[in-house]
Amino acid sequence: MSSLYKVPLLLLFVGACMGLFLRYQLIAPTQAVNFTYVLHGHSHVMFLGWVFNVLYLAFVSQFTAGQRIFRILFWILQVSVAGMLVSFPLQGYGLYSIVFTTLHTFGAYVFIACFLFHTRTRSSLAITLARTALLLFVVSSFGPFYLGYLNATGLGHSNLYRFAIYFYLHFQYNGFFFFGVLTLLLQAVEPALTPAGRTRVRRGMYIAWGTSVLTYPLSILWASPGMGYNIVGFVAAVVQVLALLCFITPVKIFLSQLTDRSARLLVVLSAAALVFKCILQILSAHPALALFANEYRAVVIAYLHLVLLGCISFFLVGWLIYKDLLPAGIGRPVKAMIIGFIGSEIVLGIMPWSAAVFRVEPMLLHKGIFVLSIPLTIGMAGITYRGTIGTRRI
């Protein structure tokens, strides 16, 4: 299965190019291009073409004997991803894009069922986390299905529509993606854990499961649903920090196993991004800050990129190096990616105060983000090139 990792790496590069193109559209819009349509394509390629594919292949290679059915399913899913890559920029949520996303969702259901069947006799912390991640993928998929119902009933412009979108995003980011990364972490270090360490991690797993559900209210506070939602979200966000503390030892063990400097740097930055994400979650429970984040799109984009690129993608690239699925010594592409990521996050973070505090025109900041997105894209291009040309079978 190792040769198949070239597919998500290629799609990572494609998604990065789409993101760079979107940045350019904010500077010099192309009349024939629908920004929202391309944005939908970009997000689906990054979610399903990059992260989902890596976790799919990782779960199969680490927990099963690599049965032929998984390879067949993988290529069926790639047809759906290719269809979304073409259809979303052309029509947004239209007939063909909906068909391809639905096919991918049901294909993922088949994969999950096959995975659960082939691992039914296995028992470990890592496999439990993998099952949790896949269950939360199923939960997240209810959001898009509900969107279809809202559109059919004429409620496409209601708050419920945005609730469904954030439901999907929440259980992808804080569910499938997060627990998928924890799965790979635990699979690598579980044999080295002491009995006390296993108990601590198991406790953290239970807490993380609960808080992954109870932090969803933080995604809808912009609608002012009531102070009770703020309180629940705040408490869940604080408790989630306690869950993460249970995984400090596994992270330390994993770092000790990494011999490549770039991999170590990526995992450290992934952990740092996760800490920062938890702080932002706690702060977002404040009603004024929740409304502030909703008012400024740059804040939302910065947060989403913090999680998808900083927390998830950095770890996945580090894990690919650890597994020799990416060649060692790719420091330059990794550094370019990190510089572009951190720089663009900083600029996005200061955008709400650009005119009043920093006296900088917003257009200048858009140009700055575009410039910083170039090394980010070049870094991903270098990682993709080294991964597709230099990957060796193991």
Score class of each variant (00 low, 15 high):
L4Y: 08
L4T: 03
P8N: 11
L10P: 09
L12T: 04
G19T: 05
L20A: 13
Q25H: 08
Q25R: 11
L26C: 03
P29Y: 12
Q31E: 15
A32H: 13
F35I: 02
H40Q: 14
S43V: 09
H44P: 15
F47A: 01
F47G: 00
F47N: 02
W50D: 00
V54I: 12
Y56R: 01
Y56D: 06
Q62T: 08
L73N: 13
L73K: 07
W75C: 06
I76T: 08
I76C: 12
A82M: 14
M84E: 04
M84D: 06
F88I: 02
G94P: 13
L95Y: 14
Y96N: 11
L103W: 08
H104A: 10
T105Q: 11
A108M: 15
Y109F: 14
A113N: 08
A113V: 15
C114W: 13
F117G: 04
H118M: 07
R120F: 10
I127K: 02
T128I: 05
A130H: 05
A130Y: 09
V139C: 09
S141W: 02
G143Q: 10
G148F: 08
L150E: 00
S158Q: 08
L160Y: 12
Y161R: 09
F167A: 07
F171W: 03
G175T: 06
L182D: 01
A188E: 12
A192N: 13
P195L: 03
G197Q: 05
I207E: 02
I207G: 00
V213T: 11
P217V: 01
L221Y: 00
P225E: 13
G233T: 11
G233P: 04
A236D: 03
V241D: 04
F247Q: 03
L255F: 08
D260I: 15
L265K: 14
V267M: 08
S270F: 08
C278T: 06
A288G: 08
A288T: 14
L291Q: 15
F292R: 13
A293Y: 03
A298Q: 09
V299C: 06
I301G: 00
L304Q: 03
W319Q: 04
K323Q: 10
A328H: 12
G331H: 13
R332V: 15
R332D: 09
I342D: 01
E345I: 13
E345C: 04
G349Q: 11
S354F: 03
F358P: 00
V360F: 04
P362A: 11
M363S: 15
F370K: 02
V371R: 00
I374K: 11
L376K: 10
G379N: 10
I383Y: 00
T388Y: 08
G390F: 01
